[in-house]
């Protein structure tokens, strides 16, 4: 079943640069779709458009069969619960003035019973935070600290815990590991893979790192200068039919 579908999506900046040129793809439920490309190719802009942080200039973004691009913030709200994100820099993604506990509970308090959780159970704030911390394999004691007292990897785990707290159907992962060291990168990718199976999540995994995308995704797209130049199943990554640019990227990580 199709969860996210982009049709002819166009986006340009006010200076006339076309960032996204006719983007088409669809993402199935419980699937991880990888998107690779070098810096500046439009990956993050695409993420911002999917997350409805930026408006698109043409085309359609369908999520769960609903076109999101024409909705206002009030109409978007029920969809926000199902459409979460983890951003590149965990340090700036957490409010420095709030304890981890407060940051984690925040989305749930906004939605309350509308969140309709299946996997987690909300009895009280403390128990809920404990469940989330367990899910991302962090010691419960960290919940009472401030973000600056945690390491980068721990902070990223917290942002992941916050993203799954509403049990969304899709999480946009915008370079979730690129600000972490190699060991943390591997453990975060492993955690994400485990959570996807456990919570029936889908990922749009955006990265410049083809090897990370390769280990995570069933489908892979390659983006260059605002266009998707190649789209293939993970098992076909070494196929001869691959685009020259894809082959170049593959040769870089081998």
């Amino acid at each position: 079943m199709t969860l996210l579908k982009l049709k002819n999506v166009i986006k340009s900046y006010s200076n006339g640069v076309n960032v996204l040129k006719d983007i088409n793809f669809s993402l199935e439920k419980k699937q991880c779709l990888g998107l690779v490309g070098e810096s500046g190719c439009g990956k993050s802009t695409l993420a911002r458009c999917v997350l409805q942080l930026d408006n698109i200039d043409g085309g359609e973004i369908q999520f769960n069969g609903v076109s999101l691009q024409d909705l206002n913030e009030r109409e978007l709200k029920p969809h926000r619960k199902n459409l979460q994100a983890v951003l590149q820099n965990p340090s700036s993604s957490l409010n420095p003035k709030l304890k981890i506990r407060e940051s984690l509970i925040d989305p749930y308090l906004q939605f309350g019973n509308q969140a309709c959780l299946k996997h987690f159970h909300y009895t009280n704030e403390e128990a809920f935070v404990t469940q989330l911390m367990e899910a991302v394999e962090l010691p419960d004691a960290l919940a009472d600290r401030y973000p600056h007292e945690l390491s980068g990897g721990q902070k990223q785990r917290v942002t992941i815990a916050r993203a799954i707290s509403l049990e969304p159907s899709l999480i946009v992962l915008d370079e979730p590991t690129s600000s972490l060291d190699v060991l943390s990168q591997a453990s975060i990718l492993k955690l994400l893979t485990g959570l996807r199976e456990e919570l029936d999540l889908s990922y749009l995994f955006i990265s410049h790192d083809l090897s990370a995308v390769n280990t995570m995704s069933q489908q892979i797209m390659v983006m260059r200068d605002g266009s998707i130049v190649d789209h293939f199943s993970q098992e076909n990554i070494f196929s001869e039919q691959r685009n020259d640019y894809t082959k170049e990227l593959i040769s870089l990580f081998e």
């Binding site: 942080l53 820099n89 957490l94 420095p96 939605f111 916050r162």
Partner: peptide, 15 residues
Amino acid sequence: QKDYITMAKINGLSE
């Protein structure tokens, strides 16, 4: 402009 406000919007928090 900071990411944590962007995240708050993504998390669906009211203004």
